[in-house]
Amino acid sequence: MSFSNEQLERYSRHIILKEIGIKGQKKLSAASVLIIGAGGLGAPAALYLAAAGVGRIGIADADRVDLSNLQRQIIHGTNDLGKEKAESAAESMRAVNPETRVETHVCFVSAANIGALIAGYDFVLDGTDNFPAKFLINDACVLAKKPFSHAGIIRFRGQLMTYVPGAGPCYRCAFKEPPPPDAVPTCSQAGVVGAMAGVIGSLQAMEAVKYFTGAGELLTGALLTYDALAQEFRKIRLPRREACGVCGSNPTITAPFDYPGAVCEVAP
């Protein structure tokens, strides 16, 4: 397949880059990404990956667009209030780039559906808002040998890491078990600056682009943290945990499972 003049123009700023070029752009066209959560993190990630010409993007979310989302979830507009988030996100993505195939999955991820969901994609991007979901995505991706980007944000802080099978630790290596419900504040309780979602979600999109094109180094074996108040990024080395329940030498987790309270985070 060779690009039309229109495609060459659309992706010209990528193609000029030595690290991407025509070859890298073709890899993006052939790539597929599943974005779980069309919220703060998923919004910029979905827009940038669609704009980047990723061939196929799945977007999974069971929620509807709420007024309190619009402060940070820039893929949705005021006219989208009440719409399914996955559908609203897909409309914005198609408007940015009609060449990208967008698939909507109007569901929450659970142990029952996650295996089938991630199986259809090359890379997974965790844009969820709760720990049970984050651990579920980690376990399912580790077990299915699926690379994924993990991220979390709160107040003025954010962090992300990338898991690639065979290269470095998983999320569970560092964080072991979800904290009990309400033990650790979430965004709905503690607040978050909208632009924080933009920064960290965009970094997740960057990881996906680099994974597919092979450019540079990924955040494998590292947690990148961002403190907006100090305006400071730090890359913290993450070791593997030999005793990790899912990726360690004697794993106790052999199939994805649900922690109780997976959907308790929805604000009343």
Binding site: L41, D61, N69, T128, A133, K134, A151, G152, S188
Partner: peptide, 12 residues
């Protein structure tokens, strides 16, 4: 010494 914190937000 590094302290790693749970950060659960991102979607909602």
């Amino acid at each position: 010494v590094e302290f790693l914190y749970f950060m659960g937000g991102g979607g909602e």
